[in-house]
Amino acid sequence: MITVLGFGSLLSERSALETVPGLSSFRRVRVPGYGRIFNKVGVVFFSRHGADPASLEIASCSTRAMPGVDIICSAFEVPEADFPALYEREHRYRWVEVEALDEFGGRCLGRLCTGSNDVDYRLNKCVTPTEYHRRVGRYYSGLLWRDDILPYPRYLAFCLRAAAAQGPEVLDNFMDCSFLADGRTSIRQYLDGPGSGLQWQGGADYGYQD
Rank of each mutant, 00 (worst) to 15 (best):
G183K: 11
L180D: 08
V4G: 04
P151M: 13
L56S: 14
I72R: 06
R89P: 03
L5G: 06
A163Q: 06
V69S: 07
G22S: 13
E80L: 14
T19Y: 09
A100V: 07
D192Q: 15
A100F: 14
T185P: 11
T19C: 09
S60C: 12
T3K: 12
L123G: 03
L160Y: 13
S74T: 14
D52Y: 13
S141W: 02
G195N: 11
L56V: 13
A157P: 07
P168S: 05
R28N: 09
C73Y: 06
V98T: 13
E88Q: 11
Y87G: 03
G167Q: 05
I37D: 03
I72K: 03
V31K: 04
G193Y: 09
D118Y: 02
Y132R: 01
R27L: 02
R138L: 11
D52L: 11
A51I: 01
G22M: 06
Q209W: 02
G197W: 07
R92V: 03
I149M: 14
D176A: 05
S15V: 10
G137Q: 06
E88A: 05
F76A: 10
H91G: 04
Y140G: 00
F158H: 11
A16F: 09
S74Y: 09
G8W: 03
G8Q: 08
Y140N: 01
L143V: 02
L156R: 08
R94W: 08
A59T: 07
C73I: 05
A181S: 15
D52K: 11
I37C: 12
T130M: 09
S74C: 12
F174D: 00
G207C: 09
R27T: 13
V69R: 09
G8H: 08
T19D: 06
G68Q: 12
N117A: 01
D182R: 08
E77T: 12
L144A: 06
L11C: 06
D192A: 15
Y132L: 05
V119P: 01
F83N: 06
F174E: 01
S15P: 04
D82Y: 10
H49S: 02
D182A: 07
Y132Q: 04
A162D: 05
D102L: 04
Y152C: 01
Y140H: 02
